[in-house]
């Protein structure tokens, strides 16, 4: 069975649509959404509605810090993120807001753990950006494979037989979409890139396919009409400086 792993949609309808249709073209019907459905992007309500439909069809959906901030206020966020959340909140229905608040922080499926940020104290939204961060996740869970998002830059870590953590150089594989085997001799942590706001220099939506039978992960990029998303941001009633900064990010993938 193959799973489409998608994370950090951030209210970007065009990116989400492109990824879902790419997944459909690859005959993938199982989805996991690793949080941050809203924030930054111009279409929070549409994205939440679409993910709710995925959840209804059986998808695993995890709560991210932006999703949590809809109900909790996002007082610890940076001003830009917080402004986007404050703008998004009234655009969601009460049902959508309630649904976001009920999402789990982590979910375990057999030997796989899904979470938005570090598996170590998931509610504290710790970024996994180094082997040391990955080590904390490996220590706080006995899952063989951990999938998370939050960082917006794809990465792959492994923990070997003697407990050492390795940060694998996967930039090339991310670009080419090659299947990477998650060897049974190790434990693995994959950080997904962002669907709706990539920050690794490529504007294309980042996601991944996990083949459970073959135990292989393929990092994928799907091009989408980011210029349209940017136009929507600029045409919105977000503060112009913030809308401009968010729009520019999409074009550069930064």
């Amino acid at each position: 069975m193959r799973l489409a792993l998608i994370s950090d949609i951030h209210g970007n309808r065009e990116a989400l649509e492109a990824v879902l249709s790419d997944a459909a073209a690859r005959q993938i019907s199982h989805f996991v959404v690793l949080g941050d459905i809203v924030g930054y992007g111009p279409d929070p309500a549409w994205c939440v509605e679409r993910v709710m439909a995925l959840a209804k069809a059986g998808a695993v959906v995890i709560r991210g810090n932006h999703d949590a901030a809809i109900a909790e206020g996002g007082r610890d966020m940076n001003p830009q993120a917080r402004a986007a959340i404050d703008w998004s909140r009234p655009r969601l229905t009460q049902t959508q807001r309630d649904w976001l608040a009920t999402l789990p922080l982590t979910q375990r499926e057999g030997e796989i753990l899904f979470t938005h940020a570090s598996a170590h104290s998931p509610g504290d939204w710790i970024y996994v950006t180094s082997g040391r961060d990955a080590m904390a996740s490996f220590r706080s869970s006995d899952a063989r494979v951990i999938f998370c998002g939050h960082v917006h830059i794809p990465a792959l870590y492994s923990c070997d037989l003697v407990g050492r953590v390795h940060d694998h150089q996967i930039a090339a594989q991310v670009a080419s979409g090659n299947a990477l085997p998650l060897l049974p001799s190790r434990r693995w942590l994959a950080v997904l890139g962002a669907v709706g706001q990539p920050r690794d220099g490529s504007p294309a939506a980042a996601w991944a396919i996990f083949d459970r039978d073959r135990q292989e992960i393929s990092f994928r990029r799907t091009a989408y009409d980011h210029a349209l998303t940017a136009r929507k941001l600029r045409g919105s009633d977000l503060a112009p400086a913030i809308a401009e900064a968010l729009a520019e990010r999409l074009r550069e993938g930064q």
Binding site: H166, D167, H168, A172, Q173, S176, N178
Partner: peptide
């Protein structure tokens, strides 16, 4: 196309 575990 795969990470080089040995070199790492």
């Amino acid at each position: 196309d795969l990470p080089d575990l040995l070199a790492e």
